[in-house]
Design a protein around this nucleic acid. Sequence first.
DNA 1: CTACCTGCAAACGGTTTGCATTGCC
DNA 2: GGCAATGCAAACCGTTTGCAGGTAG
Lengths: 146, 146
Amino acid sequence: MDRNALAIRIRDAGFRATKPRLLLLSHLYKSKSPQSIAEIAAALKTSVNQVTVYRIVDTFKKAGLVRELDLRQGRPRYELADLNHHHHVICVKCGRIEKFTGCESKRITQKALTQTKGFGQITSHSLEFFGLCNSCIKRGHHIPVS
Amino acid sequence: MDRNALAIRIRDAGFRATKPRLLLLSHLYKSKSPQSIAEIAAALKTSVNQVTVYRIVDTFKKAGLVRELDLRQGRPRYELADLNHHHHVICVKCGRIEKFTGCESKRITQKALTQTKGFGQITSHSLEFFGLCNSCIKRGHHIPVS
DNA sequence: CTACCTGCAAACGGTTTGCATTGCC
DNA sequence: GGCAATGCAAACCGTTTGCAGGTAG
């Protein structure tokens, strides 16, 4: 995605297309896995202050451009919200992350709404799988299923 | 669950049945929703130091007695791990929490394993739904579906 | 031009750690 | 009695805030 298209996306969301925002959005488009604040800040180190990274991510999250994920690694990770709907599998040993699709959210959302008498609307969901990647299994790691 | 049964559970897990541990485990058995560290500490305020709450929760989590949840409320919540398998619906406005069952984890786990070539074992998953409870809907709140 | 943004430094607050004391087993 | 566990205080560190200067529109 070129600089101009990024600027348009940012302006469409109601913000000024500043250099830090362009760089951050560009970085997320280039990333194959969800990024932590520290990773984003490191990638943009020479051009963007880490406090600004916090602020932009927060802004983009509230605007719906960016989604926050908890992959049980202590701090959140962020990815673009406009990608095809997907979820992740995370290796609990080495942190490797892969995507998968097909969460059947409609069916499960319906179940959730049927069972929870106090709720009338579901707006989003989180779903992540945790396990062991093949190379960690080869290295002899094993984790009891819970 | 009486004091003696709690002590047995704790010893079976390999720990000493101290007063703080008995009180904390008892509190979780009595709680209908997942508890934050602050809530646990407040409930046991007169008898248990908050630092001890952190330590016990961490210990129990590692031992598999307690499960940690991210309900997008800034800090984690904890519940007993030996309850029937279930997930939660959380009101993004008021924080109300309800349970539901039937996540079809086997089917989705199979999908995840099939699609992620680098993974050989799934050990656990997280799944939470976010939405609006009926009373917040009545009060006029509305959130765009993402 | 001016309201929105950013950088820097300092504050914040949840969580962790060090260490002396306590109390299960 | 001995080692695990707790309490207290202090450190830690990711995140937030205040404010002065910069910049997009």
